[in-house]
Amino acid sequence: HVRGQEPLTASMLAAAPLKEQKQLLGERLYPLIQALHPTLAGKITGMLLEIDNSELLHMLESPESLHSKVEEAVAVLQAHQAKE
């Protein structure tokens, strides 16, 4: 959690228009991912936002889940860039 911020719950998310839900999740995930990978934060967040909202909410509640998903996304991105 970012200090001073109320945790984003499933009901809070469900109350937001569908279009804004990904932005809301992104706003919460981005600083956490930036702390891990400052230069790749925007790209990694964008990649992760394409997965299901329930999984994204779980990542916000579980540092372990967030960390493993971020590292997997970084590995996929770096492998792709190495191929190119």
């Binding site: 981005y30 925007g42 790209k43 967040t45 964008g46 394409e50 493993s68 998903k69 590995a75 996929v76």
Partner: peptide, 23 residues
């Protein structure tokens, strides 16, 4: 985990935080 990795889209649009978001 393999399914998750396979689902990742490296061409996804980068996320841009909304710097004008209300507090």
């Amino acid at each position: 985990s393999k399914a998750f990795i396979a689902s990742l889209n490296v061409d996804a649009k980068p996320f841009v935080p909304n710097v004008h978001a209300a507090e």
